[in-house]
């Protein structure tokens, strides 16, 4: 059995585990769909009213029975109906996903375009002032929460320059590319800022390791130009940790970037999950978490495949 098939065959098992966890966890938290809808007014309900509502929300059965019904639906490709949206869960998720994917891709571009050159640059100027400058900047980037960066950007643009991207009504990329990019660029920069800082730090230290390797010294002593040594000989070998980091970060971003989506009012997956949890929209929470887990596994698989492409010495799935 090939590595790929073996990896793919573990997917259903992991998904099953995730589904049980999220199903039970969201129901273990005190409060239910009824208190989420009515707040303290739920205390005014008579037992018969409460029963009618529990039946409406589908929470009047034992958890195991609820889970079984839900699981049967999943096998039929039906993730249930979101009570908030009154629509099938999968449809709601797929409406939100393009934005999340676009945001993740754009922030990864920002991170790699800024972080990689900065890291390489710092490594080649190890312990000089310019290296220190890059490291300080990276430190600031990594330690500033992204909502602070977001709020600062919004405040500076609106109070200082009187401009701000349109918020509230989101324009999909295909509907109006220019307007879409206008709405996405600031969130992507906000997210990309911290992401770039991590990429800078990790690519700097990986480059430092590689630059002290024998083969690099050999190449240099043979008179290969410095630029070529760095970009052609050293960098590809320094990329593995960068790919690992980017893969994990990208996987996280596909789960939505709650704070940035909140600040810029973007209807992405992060806000969808948050609102679903707060409103105890069980079917939607379950569907979202499953979807996110699936994406995460796919990204991880892709990262592993990229390793092989980067370093042919790595043989996936063969002993050790």
């Amino acid at each position: 059995m090939s590595y790929l098939t073996r990896r793919l065959s573990t997917f259903p098992l992991v998904m099953l585990g995730v589904s049980v966890l999220v199903f039970v966890a969201i129901r273990m938290v005190p409060g239910d769909a009824i208190t989420a809808m009515l707040g303290t007014e739920a205390g005014l309900l008579t037992p018969a009213q409460r029963e009618a509502l529990a039946n409406y929300f589908g929470i009047d059965q034992p958890i195991a029975v609820q889970y079984w019904h839900w699981l049967l639906g999943v096998f039929r490709g039906d993730l249930g109906i979101s009570v908030t949206y009154g629509k099938p869960v999968l449809g709601v998720i797929l409406e939100r996903f393009p934005l999340t994917l676009q945001l993740a891709l754009m922030s990864m571009c920002v991170a790699l375009l800024v972080g990689l050159p900065a890291g390489v640059f710092a490594a080649t100027r190890n312990e000089r002032m310019s290296d220190l400058g890059v490291r300080i900047f990276a430190m600031i980037g990594q330690s500033t929460p992204n909502f602070v960066v977001g709020l600062l950007i919004i405040y500076t643009l609106s109070a200082g320059f009187g401009i701000l991207p349109t918020m509230g009504e989101f324009t999909p990329l295909l509907a109006h590319p220019l307007r879409n990019l206008g709405q996405m660029i600031l969130p992507a920069l906000t997210l990309g800022f911290a992401f770039a800082a991590s990429v800078t730090r990790i690519s700097r230290s990986a480059m430092l390791d590689v630059l002290s390797d024998d083969y690099v010294r050999t190449a240099r002593s043979k008179g290969v130009p410095k630029r070529s040594v760095i970009w052609r000989h050293a960098l590809p070998n320094a990329l593995i940790p960068v790919v690992t980091l980017s893969g994990v970060e990208f996987g996280y971003l596909l789960g939505g970037a709650v704070l940035v989506e909140q600040i810029y009012a973007l209807p992405g997956l992060g806000r969808l999950v948050l609102d679903a949890i707060l409103q105890r929209d069980y079917a939607l929470v379950q569907g979202c978490v499953l979807f996110i887990a699936f994406n995460f596994m796919v990204v991880n698989l892709i990262v592993d495949l990229v390793y092989v492409a980067l370093d042919p010495r790595i043989r996936l799935g063969e002993g050790g």
Binding site: L151, I154, Y155, L157, S158, A159, G162, L164, M167, G168, E169, Q262, I263, Y264, A265, R271
Partner: peptide
């Protein structure tokens, strides 16, 4: 429009 962050609401008013 639903703008979950009230700072963003103020910025949009501005």
């Amino acid at each position: 429009s639903v703008l979950p962050d009230e700072t963003a609401i103020l910025a949009s008013l501005r």
